[in-house]
Amino acid sequence: MAETSQSVKSDALEPDSRELRSLSPLARIVRLLPVYGVPVLTIILIILFSVLLPSTFPTWTNARLTMSNQAVTALLALAVMVPMVAGKIDISIGYGVVLWEVLAISLQTQHAVPWPLMVVIVLCGGMLLGVINALLVELARIDAFIATLGTGTVIYSLALWYTNGQQVIGQLPPSFLQLANASIFGIPAPAVYVLVISILMWLALDHLPIGRSLYAVGANPEAARLNGINTRKHIIYAFMFSGGLAALAGVVLASKLRIGQIGVGLDYLLPALVAAFLGSTTIKPGRVNVWGTVIAIVILAVGISGLQQLGGAFWVEPLFNGLTLLIAIGIAGVAGRRRAAARRMAPPPPTQPPPVQPPPG
């Protein structure tokens, strides 16, 4: 795996310490700007809105509300990020969260299923959807965007059929409602879930063989296969994790809303995609990464919260998300071209000289 790890590390565009030491202070700032530009912009936005809205924006109440409101989006962004690491995309998460949210409510209110068992059922359903997506992509050779859009539309239709287009309402146990409404050390519980999952994903993707293999598959599937990586198995893992995490987001959303609504899940799809694409432009530019995605969620949350408090109309949020997505894809495309150019200019790896044969006799 040493060769794979090295090739994956070179996919990112962040400078190393040796390069930075050779630059002047100004050149160092310019070189680091693509890496940390989004976090810096986030801090600037926080300062700006704090100055413009001193009585409402820089408050712990606003921070708690923002973390609670953005937790589902963050979970879905992390979910869509994993297939992107492997070079695929999962559109079905935005549709799946609708079914999982409705199912989380109806299993408890209409079928008397205890909520811990309900969570297991919903998570298994999400992972099963991930397997179906992976099989369509890998065995049927359908483009991932088309395949997951198709399965997403199908399960959204199932949600419509199951609910007959109506809200699902009933008495829910208080312990289930605490999943989204409790606080841990003063921090909303959903935000803690996001932090814990982010840390686990960072450890897996950046420090474990499965993460290095997923990055290798995403960078060059054929080269990964020649290096002994089972590309099909890792793509199945990626879609399974994506489906399971989207199902968890559905459970958290059900606990937050307390009713099953078929019209809420699709609102989270675009922000999740925006965060995943924007996350690939920061921290490790040119490579999808966990902390870049988390920072992208923060800047989206800060921007939308500030604009809404300034009196932005109801259409400000989708406009902000759409423009940010276009900018993120553009930056990601530039980073990808820079990465490809860096690969072409890199010197070939040294070859080992053939062993010296002893003279005969």
Results as ranks from 00 to 15, higher is better:
68 S>F: 06
68 S>W: 02
68 S>N: 12
68 S>D: 10
68 S>K: 13
69 N>T: 10
69 N>L: 12
69 N>F: 02
69 N>D: 14
69 N>W: 00
70 Q>R: 13
70 Q>W: 15
70 Q>Y: 14
70 Q>S: 14
70 Q>V: 04
70 Q>I: 06
71 A>Y: 03
71 A>N: 04
71 A>E: 08
71 A>W: 10
71 A>K: 05
72 V>Q: 08
72 V>A: 04
72 V>W: 03
72 V>S: 06
72 V>P: 01
72 V>C: 08
73 T>Y: 08
73 T>A: 11
73 T>V: 14
74 A>R: 06
74 A>M: 04
74 A>Y: 12
75 L>V: 03
75 L>S: 09
76 L>V: 05
76 L>S: 02
76 L>E: 12
76 L>D: 12
77 A>S: 14
77 A>W: 07
77 A>N: 07
77 A>G: 07
77 A>T: 06
78 L>K: 08
78 L>R: 11
78 L>E: 11
79 A>M: 06
79 A>R: 01
79 A>W: 05
79 A>C: 09
79 A>N: 05
80 V>C: 04
80 V>T: 14
81 M>S: 13
81 M>A: 15
81 M>K: 05
81 M>N: 01
81 M>D: 00
81 M>I: 01
82 V>D: 03
82 V>I: 15
83 P>R: 10
83 P>F: 10
83 P>G: 08
84 M>T: 02
84 M>S: 09
85 V>C: 12
85 V>W: 09
85 V>N: 08
87 G>H: 01
87 G>W: 05
87 G>S: 02
87 G>E: 07
87 G>Q: 06
87 G>T: 07
87 G>A: 07
88 K>F: 04
88 K>Q: 15
88 K>L: 06
89 I>M: 14
90 D>K: 04
90 D>C: 00
90 D>F: 01
91 I>S: 03
91 I>D: 08
91 I>F: 15
91 I>C: 09
92 S>C: 07
92 S>Q: 13
93 I>N: 07
93 I>R: 05
93 I>E: 05
93 I>G: 04
93 I>K: 06
93 I>T: 15
94 G>M: 05
94 G>H: 06
94 G>N: 10
94 G>Y: 10
94 G>A: 10
95 Y>E: 03
95 Y>C: 12
95 Y>F: 11
95 Y>H: 12
96 G>R: 00
97 V>H: 05
98 V>R: 00
98 V>N: 13
98 V>M: 13
100 W>M: 15
100 W>T: 15
100 W>F: 15
100 W>P: 00
